[in-house]
Nucleic acid binder design. Structure first.
Lengths: 211, 211, 211, 211
DNA sequence: CATGAATGAGATTTCATTCAT
DNA sequence: TATGAATGAAATCTCATTCAT
C-alpha cells in the first residue's frame, strides 16, 4: 500500500471520527429531531455534505453515534474484574464504576433517553445490536453466587434486579437533574450532593444484599 | 351570566382542553422538536391557528402541557394520607402510589425527560413553577419521624434521599424500557416483570429504613 | 337628547379619537404594511375589533389618519396671515411656519412618505380630498404680487415653484435624517444643525426672490 | 479554474444578481413589510428558497438591495469631474448630475425613504457602510474654494449645506410627486414641469452662491 | 350599539437531502 | 473519491378580518 493511500485513509477516518464526535454532542444536546446537520458539520470542521457521504442519512448518523456510546460502555464493562476482590468490596466497586460512568458520560444518558423516546427504533435496526448486549448481568450473577457461598450475601437475589437497582439509583438523579432541581428547589448535581447520594445508594445496595 | 356565555366559555375551555391533551400526547411521543403542530391540531379536531390563539407559540404550548402534567401529579400527591396508617404500611403505600403513577402516566415520564433534555428551560420560565414544587418531601419527613418514634425506622434517613431512591426505582425501568429490553435481551414491561420489580423495589426500600 | 345618550356619544367619539391617534402613531412608525392592528388597539386602550367597527378596514383607518394629518396642516395654514407684515418678513414667516410644522409633526412627514410609496392611492380615494387641497399657493401668489409692487421681489417668480423650494428645503433633511446622518457621517437633527440649516435655507429663499 | 467551474460561478452570480434586482424592484414598490418573497422569486425566475440561500433572511436581502443602490450612486459620483470646468459650469453640472440621477433611479429614492422609515437600521448594520459614505461633500468643498479663488462664488458657503440644498430641490418633488399632484391639483412629473423645476432650482443655487 | 371568540389564507423560514461533476 | 451548489417540501407563525350574538 502506498504511503499516499495510507495518508488518505487516515484523513478519511479522521474526518469520519470528527463528524461522529460532533454528532454525538449535538444529538446529546438537542435530541434527534432537534439536532442540526449544520451545527454538526461546523463542529466537525467539515460540511453537511460529508454527513451524508459518510453516514447516508440523519438516522444513519444517529445510529452510528448510539452504537459508539454503547460500544464504549461495553468496552469499559469488559474491563471490570469483579473476581479479584472480596464480594462486598467487588459489589461496591461495581456500583462506583456504573455511577462514575454515568457522571463522566452525560452524552450516554442523553442519547439513551432520546433512543427510548424513539422506542429503541435505531438500536433494533442496528446490525451491531448483538455486540451491544451487556455482559454485566452475567458478571453480577457470578458475584452474587460467590458472595452467597461466602455467606456475606443472602439468597434470593436476582442479578437483573440488582443491576436495575444499581443503575436506577445512579441514572435517575443525573438524567432528571434539571427538573428535580426546579421541583425540589435544591441544587442536586454539585459534588457534595452527588457524594452523599452515592453513599446513600451504596448503603441501600449493601443493606439489600446483606446476609 | 347568560346561558349563551356559559356555553361559549365551556366550548372555549373544551377546545383549549382538547388542544392541550393532544399536545401532551404529541410532545410525549415525539419530543419538543419532533412534535408537529398539524398532528396536534388534527388530534384536537381543531386548527393549527388555534394552537397559537390559545398558547401563543409551540414553546407556550409545551410549557402548558408540562405544567398540566406536573399539576396533575401534585394534585394526586396532595391526596395522599400518609398519616392514617402505621409507618411501614404508609411507606409501602407511598411507594406503590409513586410507581403506579409512573406506570399510569407514561406521558409524564416522557415530558419530564424531554424537559431535562432542554435543561428545564420551560419549567424555569413557568410563572406557575412555585405551584409545582412537590409536597412529598415534607410528607416523607413527617412519616420518617413518626416511624422513628415508633422504633420501626432507624435514624439517619434523609427524606430527599429516600424520595430519590423510591422515584429512581420506579422511573428508570419505565423510562428506559426500550433500550433495556434490547440490551438485556429480556422483555421488561409486562405485568409479571413489573410486579416482580415492584416487589424487589419495595423490599429494597424496607430493608433500607428498617430499624 | 337624554344625558345618557350624550355621554355615550362622547365615549364613542373618545374611543374613535384614541384609535385614530394610535393609528397615526403606528402608521407613522411602521408604514402601512408594517403597522399592526394589535399595537394600535393596545395603544388606544381598545380592541382590534373596534378598529373594524369604527373604520371598516386597515385601509379605511389609514385613510382616516392621513386625512386627519392633512386636515390639521390645512387648518394651520388657514391661520396664516401673510398680509399683515411687509413682504420680506411675511415670506420669512411663511418659511418658518412650514419648517416648524415639519419639525413639530414628524408623523405628517412619515405618513406622506408612506402615501407616496402607495402612489397616493388612499388620498385619491378620499371623499374629502377637495378639502385637503392646499391654500398656500394662492396665498404665496398674493404675497409675491405684493412684494413685486413694493419692488422688494423681482419679477418672474412662480408661486408653485417658490412653495416647492421652501417645502423641499425643510422636508428633505427631516425625512432623510437617518440615512443622511449615516452617509454624511454627521448628526444632522440636533438643534444647532437645524438652526443653521434654517438660516441657510431662509438665505437661499431671500436671495432667490430678491429684486 | 476549469470552464465548468467558471460557468457555474457565473450562473451563481447571475442568479444572485437576478434576485437582487427583483428584490430592489419589489422593496422599492412595496416597502420592506409590504414586499413579498414570492413575487421576488417569480420576477427573478428563481425560488423563494434561493432568497434564503443567498441572502439569509428578508432583512439580509433588503440590506443587500440597499447597499447595491448606494453603491451604484457612489460609483456614479466617483465618475464626476468637477475640476475640468469653470466653477459655475461645474456646479451646474453637479446639480444636473444629482437631479438626473434621482429621476433615472426612482428605486433609489424609494429605498432610501423606506430605510428612513426604519431609522437607517439596515444601513447602520451594514458591514459596508463605510464604503457607502459619500465623496461629494469633499468634491463640493474643493469646487467652492476654487470658485471663491476665481471670485465667482461668494465666501461663507458651507459645502454640506450646499449639497443638502441641491439634493433637497431635486429629491422632494420626485419623492412626493403623488401627494403633491393631488394636493396642488397639478401634474408635476411630466417633462415640461420637471424641466422648469430644474431650471428654477439651478437658478436658486446660482443666486445662492453668486459673489 | 358593542364586543369576545374565532379563523382562512398566506408569510417567512427551516430542514434534510439530492444534483452534478 | 470528494464536494460546492441547489432545492422540494414542509414547519412555524402572522395578519387582517369575520362570526355570532
Amino acid at each position: 500500500m502506498s504511503e499516499e493511500v495510507t495518508r488518505k485513509r487516515r484523513d478519511r477516518e479522521a474526518t469520519r471520527g470528527r463528524i461522529l464526535k460532533a454528532a454525538t454532542a449535538e444529538f446529546s444536546r438537542h435530541g434527534f429531531a432537534g439536532a442540526r446537520g449544520e451545527r454538526i458539520a461546523q463542529r466537525a470542521r467539515s460540511s453537511e455534505r460529508m454527513l451524508y457521504y459518510y453516514f447516508g442519512s440523519k438516522e444513519g448518523l444517529f445510529r452510528a453515534a448510539l452504537e459508539a456510546v454503547y460500544s464504549a460502555l461495553r468496552d469499559a464493562e469488559r474491563g471490570l474484574r469483579l473476581d479479584e476482590q472480596p464480594p462486598l468490596e467487588a459489589l461496591d466497586g461495581f456500583c462506583r464504576f456504573v455511577w462514575r460512568y454515568y457522571v463522566d458520560h452525560p452524552e450516554f444518558i442523553s442519547l439513551v433517553n432520546t433512543e427510548n423516546l424513539h422506542q429503541a427504533r435505531h438500536l433494533r435496526k442496528s446490525a451491531r445490536v448483538h455486540e451491544l448486549v451487556s455482559p454485566v448481568v452475567g458478571m453480577l450473577a457470578e458475584l452474587i453466587a460467590r458472595g452467597q457461598r461466602a455467606r456475606v450475601f443472602r439468597s434470593g437475589i436476582d442479578p437483573v434486579e440488582l443491576y436495575l437497582a444499581i443503575a436506577s439509583l445512579g441514572y435517575f438523579l443525573l438524567s432528571n437533574q434539571h427538573t428535580l432541581s426546579a421541583v425540589l428547589d435544591r441544587k442536586l448535581r454539585d459534588v457534595a450532593n452527588l457524594t452523599r447520594h452515592w453513599q446513600t445508594s451504596a448503603d441501600i445496595i449493601r443493606r439489600y444484599v446483606a446476609a
